[in-house]
Nucleic acid binder design. Sequence first.
DNA 1: CAGATACTCAACTATTCGGTTGACTATCCT
DNA 2: AGGATAGTCAACCGAATAGTTGAGTATCTG
Lengths: 122, 122
Amino acid sequence: MVEQQTADLTPVFHALGDTTRRGMLGALAVGARTVGQLAAPFEMSLAAASKHIKVLEKAGLIRREVRGRSHICRLDPGPLASAHEWLSFYERFWTGRLDALDRLLREEAGKHPPAPQTGDET
Amino acid sequence: MVEQQTADLTPVFHALGDTTRRGMLGALAVGARTVGQLAAPFEMSLAAASKHIKVLEKAGLIRREVRGRSHICRLDPGPLASAHEWLSFYERFWTGRLDALDRLLREEAGKHPPAPQTGDET
DNA sequence: CAGATACTCAACTATTCGGTTGACTATCCT
DNA sequence: AGGATAGTCAACCGAATAGTTGAGTATCTG
């Protein structure tokens, strides 16, 4: 099983909520990249790209190895795994498999105001 | 895997990058909820919660049915599925299973998964 | 050494975000 | 009709984003 440290998902999802940063992750999926290489495809200053990289780094999505004057960035998939796992909870809602228990829970809690069982909506 | 509506992932991930909104999704996973019910657990004004709900709605994560004076919100898992699928591309990086095919992909460069459109290099 | 290269950092700007409050609309209930 | 209930909307505020430019710090190279 994937036993990742439960990363704080807020900075992770926040980092993912930007096309530039997702593009950078896509590049890093191919292999390690320097800051300059990561920045190259984007029409913005190096400083701006550097900020994006820092956002990814603080979210734990990349690791940086300073080698001489070059900063080599590598993908750290841990937080991605956490995010993926968080989303997996909702998987049953888009797969057809809403089994009886799920259906019961959903309709029970949603429809009838005075839930008879333990179902206290909070 | 079937056809997925190509949701714009930026608003989706952005919506997920907030604990309040993730909490609301958690409540909606149990069943449909009115705006007031969604807002109740959080210590903020109803208007603030209403804004969060609107963010979720614009990201396509919830649907709203106005019934009388109550707005009933339901989970729409489509964008969650898209986000999950996007993350799945990186699954091989945390499963530790970098087999020959992966290696080929990585060194052959070329294609990023379902996100970056901003060119690539190397 | 001088100069190019690879970055970061600080300051500044404009926009967005998350929250507030007050006013308003619409619906439900006597 | 009148009042409580459910929720939105607009204006406002402070903090965070996303970008810029200019300067500074190492590091490599000739």
